[in-house]
């Protein structure tokens, strides 16, 4: 039975940039949903401002970015900046897609707590999200 005061984990899954391949993002969204989370999916070709604004309005706990185009080192810092500009500083960030090993450290420094490269399982992502969301009212 659900209680009257349950706390739902809310996740935004977004695809910044111009690549239009969102199968991976959809699979992750689906896996998170199947583990009981509410997933806001915004579709492809999102600007950093659109992503940050959606994260703000939806008051999500977690933002996951999917990217295959290779533009992550350009776009991800801009997403982080756009979030900061809106005072959204307490969301957990993770990234998935084609991200070369040598970029991982830089993304971590930027605040990405989870980085999932090709081969990562959806289960890993689900567990990461669950573990990194601190209980909040």
């Amino acid at each position: 039975m659900t209680t009257t005061e349950q706390r739902q984990i809310r996740v935004l899954i977004a695809k910044p940039g111009l690549d239009g391949h969102d199968r991976g993002a959809k699979v992750v969204a689906r896996a998170l949903r199947d583990s009981g989370m509410e997933v806001i999916y915004t579709g492809i070709r999102q600007t950093p401002e659109m992503i940050a604004e959606a994260a703000l309005q939806e008051d999500v706990d977690v933002v996951g970015l999917s990217i295959l185009s290779g533009a992550h080192m350009e776009l991800f810092p801009r997403v982080v900046e756009a979030l900061k500009a809106r005072g959204v500083s307490d969301v957990v960030l993770f990234a998935g897609g084609i991200i070369p090993e040598e970029d991982v450290a830089a993304l971590r420094a930027l605040g990405f707590r989870g980085i999932f490269r090709p081969g990562a399982s959806t289960q890993e992502i689900v567990e990461f999200v669950r573990a990194s969301v601190e209980p909040r009212e």
Binding site: T2, Q8, A29, R30, L32, R33, D34, S35, G36, M37, E38, V39, I40, Y41, T42, G43, Q46, E49, M50, E53, A54, Q57, E58
Partner: peptide, 21 residues
């Protein structure tokens, strides 16, 4: 909400992207 998992995919923003700004 899925009655089985209590999760949900909320996709309405896809059709309203240009309002975000």
């Amino acid at each position: 909400t899925s009655p089985f998992t209590s999760g949900a995919i909320l996709g309405d923003r896809i059709r309203m992207q240009d309002l975000t700004g």
